[in-house]
């Protein structure tokens, strides 16, 4: 009897939110975005581009504001500023003796500040809160179209150039010696990073989007020694996090973006503690080698 009650409870825990149109859309879109960011995260964590991810995602802020003000697709503005920040970082680094991480920090905070100032100046219907912290529950139809298009583009680029990008992250010098265009791959990865940041910021917002771009990859890195498996694990853990995060936020009335990232962080912690080979408590004997 009790058991029966419990099971209906659990079923309604899962199904109730699905009766809302906005929840179904949020779950679908967030999963898509999470999958794309998770896919990319396996490259970024291996390349050591966490800070770069943070920089790009913050730098898109003024682009989003300007695009909204001009009535352009927000992804366009975001992309231009994302790529622009990267170009500027490269330029300043080359022309001055300031160290790279300093340049990165300097440029992205500058862009971010510009974005905040712009929001306060352009009194339009821009919702600062949803830009900063995401609003997966309020995605509009045009946002859906943009997100789907960009997601497919990123997945396609990452798939076509998959092996070259792995080589680029692993040993760019060898890539160069065998005649592969390393500069192209560098900018390709940066472009994908900007695009993923653009779609990611809708679900978790500018402040937390970097988590979508590195945490799944870092989790997967603890669990496997194969790049292919790493990508699969990263994508799956990212999707689980966003679905679970959205449910949590629905039932307990939590900030959605924060919930998603928090679940990701918990999954990472779990891997950090219990990963068979690289966790703190190694359960090597329980699992096979890899």
């Amino acid at each position: 009897m009790n058991l029966c009650f419990l099971s209906t409870n659990i079923t309604s825990f899962v199904t109730d939110p699905l009766s809302h149109e906005f929840m179904r859309k949020a779950l679908l879109m967030s999963s898509l975005v999470a999958a794309v960011c998770g896919f990319l995260s396996s490259y970024l964590t291996l390349k050591g581009w966490a800070l770069m991810g943070d920089a790009v995602s913050h730098s898109v802020m003024p682009g989003v504001v300007v695009a909204y003000a001009l009535g352009l697709p927000f992804s366009l503005g975001a992309f231009i500023f994302g790529v622009g920040s990267v170009a500027l970082i490269g330029f300043v680094k080359q022309k001055s003796r300031v160290k790279e991480d300093t340049v990165i920090g300097l440029v992205f905070t500058g862009f971010f500040a510009l974005g905040i100032v712009l929001v306060s100046k352009i009194k339009s219907n821009i919702d600062l809160h949803s830009i900063l912290f995401g609003s997966p529950l309020g995605i509009s139809l045009s946002d859906v179209k943009q997100t789907v298009f960009i997601s497919l583009l990123v997945v396609m680029l990452l798939s076509v150039f998959r092996k070259d990008l792995i080589l680029y992250c692993f040993d760019p010098r060898h890539a160069k010696t065998v005649g592969i265009n390393v500069l192209f791959l560098h900018y390709l990865l940066l472009t994908c990073l900007s695009l993923a940041a653009v779609v990611g910021l809708q679900t978790v917002g500018i402040v937390l989007v970097v988590a979508m771009l590195i945490t799944p990859g870092a989790t997967a890195y603890l669990l496997t020694d194969r790049f292919d498996n790493m990508t699969i694990i990263a994508v799956i853990s990212a999707i689980i996090s966003s679905v679970f995060g959205i449910y949590l936020s629905f039932w307990f009335d939590l900030e959605t973006g924060g919930s998603i990232v928090l679940v990701q962080t918990f999954i990472f912690l779990f891997a950090f503690l219990f990963a068979p080979r690289y966790g703190i408590f190694k359960f090597k004997k329980l699992f096979s080698n890899y």
């Binding site: 291996l46 992250c169 692993f170 040993d171 890195y221 194969r226 790049f227």
Partner: peptide, 27 residues
């Protein structure tokens, strides 16, 4: 063909011996 000094590469990178040797053919 270039064989790097060991310091120059990330030896924790998740690729197998076969994968690395195959990279010699990419060009």
């Amino acid at each position: 063909a270039y064989v790097p000094q060991s310091e120059g590469i990330d030896c924790q990178f998740p690729v197998s011996v076969w994968d690395v040797v195959m990279m010699g053919r990419y060009g």
